[in-house]
Amino acid sequence: MSETLRTSDQGQVLADIRRALGRSETVRPMPLEPFIEAPVVTTSAELVARFTEEITAVVGHAHRARSSAEVATHIARICADASVRELALSGASMLAELNLPAQLAAQHLSAVVVADFDSRSRDELIAFLAGCGVGVTAVDYAIAETGTLVLTSDEEQSLLVSLLPAIHIAVVHQHQISSSLATVIEKLNHERMLRAAPCRTATFITGPSRTSDVELTLSIGVHGPKALHVIMLGEDSNDARLESTTPTSA
């Protein structure tokens, strides 16, 4: 692979760096003291309210559901509004547990689970997704203070479901919502990154794709999805939750 290509200037660049810093060998630095932020006390209901507010602020749509049937009903309504009959589902176990394919079939929709996509060719899958009106995914985390969804995936197909179709619908359990970016970075770090087989890709999604490149005028749906719907699943709860970012030990 790259070994057969040009030789790398690793030694030379590192030598230039060391010379610039006035040393002849790399020294292992003492890591910085951790950055400790005040813990946040919040309730599930507050988180849902804030999350909803922020999603709306970035031109996303937030929906509530108490059961898998209600999730399917929301999806069916979004599809009907957009005149979509065929949709793509990511292979997330959460969607399977909600029995969504069968629920959607009952609503006369044809839901293709990408993990079962009946083709050997990735190109065909991409063409299918690019032409697909709606893609449904689960999420791994959510951030209330910015209205952000966090999707992680080792399987590239599932990521494409949140990217290529015109509309992205994400299903999130209320208990997956955290208050702050700091909390979610900490979770992502410990649960997905610092492990023997780290996740390949994580994506933060905050609203549908957008641009202000022409006269600073906001325009929605430039390259990614043109609309984002978030369906929050779960009952309201006013139990206090304590969130703190425990510092990473170096």
Binding site: E54, I143, T146, G147, R200, F204, I205, T206
Partner: peptide
Amino acid sequence: KQTAYVSFLN
């Protein structure tokens, strides 16, 4: 507050 997308690639 946050951009529409942040990608983390490993």
